[in-house]
Amino acid sequence: MDKAVEVARDDFGTVSAGRANPALFQRVLVDYYGSPTPLNQLAGMQNPEARVLLVTPYDKSALKEIEKALVAMPNLSANVGNDGEIIRVTLPELTEERRKEFVKIVREKGEQAKVAIRNIRRKAKDDLDGLSEVGEDDISRAEKELDGATKGHVDQIDEALKRKEAELLEV
């Protein structure tokens, strides 16, 4: 369940709030000599301005492939420019409509994380029901602990979701 909360927070980080952040690009895979390679292994990233990110490839021959991967990124809608040495990614100013779209995307990611936690709970409950050598009191106590853990993790996701929504709607 902790892993599901961590993945949800990482997913929330990949949604732009109008500021250039290297976390937006943590899931970008670049076709580097035939194998998908994470962008952070191929290039350094800096954000000199709030809406600009500079991507400096370690290997200049990967420049075109990195640019192609950045242009193909879903939900980015940024201007990607290549000057032969570095790639400049400029994020547009977010409109009210685009902010609401991002909130919907984040809520969807949050709901997927909650479903993952509920699936973990269901599997653990089935495992508890399958135990025959343990007394009913112990199983009942374990189920209460499981429900408490589930509620705590769902609350963590809700809290992270609330923070991300506030960040997205902030003008």
Rank of each mutant, 00 (worst) to 15 (best):
E133D: 15
D137Q: 08
T56E: 10
G44R: 09
V115G: 01
K100N: 11
K109R: 11
R118K: 02
K60R: 13
K114E: 01
E96M: 01
A72S: 12
L128I: 10
A78R: 03
A113M: 00
A69Y: 04
K104V: 11
D129G: 12
A78L: 09
A124K: 15
D83L: 04
R88W: 07
D83A: 09
A142R: 01
G110K: 00
P57Q: 00
K104H: 11
R99F: 06
T150Y: 05
K123D: 15
R51W: 10
E101M: 05
N79G: 15
H153K: 10
L131N: 13
E65S: 15
S132C: 06
S77H: 13
I87G: 02
E93H: 12
K151T: 01
K64E: 12
R51K: 13
K68H: 08
E97W: 04
G130R: 10
K151Q: 09
L53T: 00
S140K: 15
L128D: 03
V103S: 04
A50N: 07
R99I: 03
E136K: 09
G81E: 11
A50P: 09
I105Q: 13
I139T: 09
G130K: 11
K114F: 02
L146N: 05
K64M: 08
K109I: 03
E65H: 09
S77F: 12
D138R: 14
L128N: 07
M73S: 11
T150H: 06
D126L: 12
G81M: 11
L128V: 06
L76S: 05
K114I: 07
Q46K: 14
K68F: 00
D59H: 00
G152T: 02
I105D: 08
V89Q: 06
A72N: 10
V71M: 10
A69V: 04
L128C: 00
K114Y: 03
L94F: 03
E49I: 11
L76D: 01
L94N: 04
D129Q: 15
G44W: 02
T90N: 12
S132L: 11
D129C: 10
E108N: 14
G84Q: 07
E108I: 07
A116E: 09
V154Q: 06
G84T: 02
E101G: 08
S132A: 13
T95S: 12
V134R: 07
T56C: 00
V55I: 11
A142W: 04
M45H: 00
D83F: 07
E85V: 14
D155C: 06
S132V: 14
E96H: 05
L131V: 14
E65G: 06
R121L: 01
K123C: 11
N47L: 01
E96F: 01
D83E: 00
D127S: 13
T90W: 09
A116Q: 08
E93N: 12
A149M: 14
Q112A: 15
R51Q: 14
A78V: 07
K68L: 04
M73C: 10
P74E: 12
I86K: 14
R107N: 15
L94M: 09
I117C: 05
Q46P: 11
D155Y: 01
G135F: 01
A62T: 05
R121E: 04
K114G: 00
D147A: 10
G81P: 09
V71D: 08
G135V: 03
A124M: 13
L76P: 05
G148E: 02
E65W: 07
E65R: 10
S61G: 11
R141I: 14
V115C: 05
V52E: 12
P57C: 00
I120V: 14
S140W: 13
